[in-house]
Design a binder for these strands. Structure first.
Lengths: 343, 343
DNA sequence: TGTTAGCACTCTTCACTGCTGAGTGCTAAT
DNA sequence: ATTAGCACTCAGCAGTGAAGAGTGCTAACA
């Protein structure tokens, strides 16, 4: 069922006005501000149709109309002007990233800050999923008589450490040899595989080091397991409270509770598969966010998706703007990752 | 100027009732619930005195009294029952920490979560300040032909990594030798000193490696500088909104804005010197928190303060409870740190 | 047949009103 | 020094009515 082109224009007008004002939009407003050559009475008739079709709703009899989730969906998929990213924004993001060096987690945290400050909504971000990356180098270092340190570097440039206490004073050469053996055997495996791996088959290679292996390996695997869940960040929680829809304290409370639940955020960010996805209102699996829209995008390394970022806001969201910012940001993220970490 | 003992009792009654109910406390309430053998009229007279002395205030003529900052201060310093930590809470904290292994930052993050969930306020925490700890071991590892990795372990068990791209393919033995030289020269120095150090005096020791040094050192120092600022965490932001004082959206907004400003939180947590400190209302240097109270405590390693944690809430805070929880938590933190990281 | 003007109707919002209850300060009696 | 009693103050609440926004319907018009 396709809408007449005038109905489309009216729906678009209603949505864009509502996005800007957060006030129900009346027929008069549409007639005066958007479709000046049509009278408000005509608009009224069309609006009644649009309501019947489920694209807009009326909060109460004497109010204007507001878009429904279905309306927003049509808008995002067909009506919205796909505005290319503002050149200025693009430059800004690029520049901000240039200045951020250091650990990759820090980069993602910064990305989250950028997203929230540029969109004025709340951003969420997931650091690279360690388990999806592959072992590139492993080295066991002696710190002192009782502490050894396992350093793991993966292809996405993630580095993880694990301090292991050892009862015996192992000499450096031994550790080097063990490092070499492990490196040979394990190189290129994903951390996910590695954790599940059956190490008994290593038996042949480790003649003479068996005792040390049985002391170190479990600790190492344990540490890997603990690193499996990626860090989750959010930023700009205060932005939400600027919006009129969150003048209701209860709603603000519910929203903040979601942000405090790392598991929930993880599920949200982990669920993303497409490059960029827009989830509107009740489309959300997480029922606490059924009044929110969520725009997420993934970032990749070596063709593999390793993490994602997103923006959460009211369904009355500046979709066009946010989508372009999120897109641009992940684009830059991909660039930087592939550049920093080229072999 | 010392209060009569009955005035003290009345002040205590007012404060404790107000802490529980968030409602101004009237003379009748005090007489009925706390000092049953004195009439409300007498209480009224005493309350008028207390108000004149500045310990309590009246929101408006026909309301009861609420404590002033000065009142809370007296209460915290002299009136409050210094309740020892609940044995159950202590066990709980201990147990929670036992289960948390892994990186020290994760431990602190967990501590923050614990604080907010046990106190029902918002917690803030600063991970160990890298720069205040001393170099224990430094090792430079070859990852592949173009990437080398510097691993730095400090006495507090903090491990930092820095991936350095190198134009030349340096062989492993060379890196080992460089590691040894640097270790010898730099062991025991605090990171703070290290960053400021003049490396030209190394010249003699590095015959033959000079070119490599000049490539690696600046990168290494840069990475150290970026790690200088400790991570800041907060948790339980949603708890605040449960409190009636934050039904005013504007106040909630102001508070969230503080949490979003890492620099501000850093200043707050960095300012702490005493073991445990209680800052009430306008005593706060940060003007955004002049309606809040802040209870902070430090944790140490090797006798040096390396970080701090805190709880932020309304001035109407359950001081006794929070102080005991914060104390207990840092106590446990100290224990764990000294145990985990003993040489 | 699609469009428009006009009008009665609905419903929210806001300002105003008067009432109630909580709490006070003062006074006079104990 | 303490207490009972009383007049007074003020926030909060419910009720009221007017104003304004927006609608749906009808009848006229191109």
């Amino acid at each position: 069922m396709s809408l007449g082109s005038r109905k489309q224009l009216i729906l678009q007008a209603i949505i864009e006005d509502y996005i800007n004002t957060a006030e129900p939009v009346g027929s008069r407003t549409v007639s005066k501000k958007y479709l000046t050559d049509v009278s408000s009475a005509t608009i009224r008739n069309e609006m009644a149709d649009l309501e019947e079709m489920g694209y807009i709703e009326q909060p109460h009899t004497s109010a204007g109309r507001i878009p429904s989730d279905k309306g927003y969906r049509l808008y995002v998929d067909h009506l919205m002007s796909q505005k290319a990213i503002n050149q200025k924004d693009n430059d800004f993001i690029r520049k901000e990233f240039m200045d951020t060096i250091g650990e990759i987690d820090r980069l993602i945290k910064h990305a989250s800050k950028l997203l929230s400050s540029m969109t004025k909504y709340t951003s969420i971000a997931m650091a690279p999923q360690f388990k999806r990356t592959c072992l590139k180098h492993l080295q066991i270092i002696k710190v002192d008589s009782f502490n050894i340190l396992a350093v793991i570097v993966t292809d996405a440039g993630i580095v993880k450490n694990s301090v292991i206490r050892s009862e015996q004073d192992i000499d450096i050469d031994t550790l080097d040899k063990i490092s070499k053996i492990l490196n040979e055997k394990l190189l290129g495996l994903s951390i996910e595989e590695l954790v599940k791996m059956d190490f008994s088959e290593l038996d042949n290679s480790i003649n003479g080091y068996k005792q040390i292996f049985t002391e170190i390996l479990p600790e190492l695997l344990q540490a890997l397991k603990y690193s499996e869940r990626a860090e989750i960040y959010y930023d700009g929680a205060a932005n939400l409270l600027e919006l009129p829809e969150y003048n209701d304290v209860q709603k603000a409370k519910d929203f903040l509770n979601v942000l405090d639940e790392n598991d929930l955020l993880f599920d949200i960010l982990n669920d993303v598969s497409k490059d960029t996805s827009v989830i509107i209102g009740k489309e959300n699996k997480v029922h606490q966010l059924k009044n929110c829209s969520l725009i997420t995008a993934t970032y990749s390394f070596n063709g593999k998706i390793i993490g994602s970022v997103g923006v959460v806001g009211p369904t009355r969201m500046k979709y066009s703007k946010v989508i372009s910012v999120v897109d641009c940001l992940t684009q830059n993220l991909n660039d930087i990752l592939s550049k920093i970490i080229k072999t």
